[in-house]
Amino acid sequence: MIRASVIVFPGSNCDRDVKVATEAVTGSKANMVWHGDSEVPKSDFIILPGGFSYGDYLRCGAMAAHSPIMRDVIAKAHAGTPVIGICNGFQILLETGLLPGALMRNASLLFICRDVFIRCDNNRTFFTNCYREKEVARVPIAHHDGNYFADKATLDCLETENRVAFRYCDVGGEVTEAANPNGSQRNIAGITDPTGRILGLMPHPERLFEPALGGTDGRRVFESAVVSVMEAAA
């Protein structure tokens, strides 16, 4: 049985969506873990969902990064438990330092809520192995602060270590400035840690995971996790 845990912060609003998407592919109930708890139950992977944790006070993700449950999430991540942070979850991963860089206000200053195209630039990670190399996927974004920033040395290191998992692109897979919705450096939409077990991304794969939602391009993020867990167990 595959067990996923979803961390629920005050202000999370995609926690139920990721629960439904995860349970659809794992076939077993996900743990919903409250931010005030001190321990995450034993899990095959952990999800930090989207939303507006703690009302985005101070900086997006800053308060959540210091909540009681995150001490254990960080400890488990360091011990090898895979973690995915989606949208606000990505902001939280950056604020904890589990991933490098920061997410700033969108260059347009607008809250952007629409589908975009992203290209999978590394399909050999825990959460991306069901995508083809350079596959283009259509997924929704919904954020005000998704403008990825890191200094040049960090960006070069991410590229050298093949840690850019997804980039904003056009429908043909070309990474262009016009296809960059929020000003992110080098069109970065998602990055991993050096092991490929921790993924942070701004787009919402859970919002396009079944035909009833209008598409299935996001589903493979969750299917990838299942494949990774099964392969590790085999």
């Binding site: 101070l58 800053a62 210091h66 950056l94 860089g101 920061a102 700033m104 920033f149 890191a150 200094d151």
Partner: peptide, 9 residues
């Protein structure tokens, strides 16, 4: 260092 500023930016 711990909370008030994000020293990345």
């Amino acid at each position: 260092q711990n909370l008030l500023a994000n020293t990345v930016i």
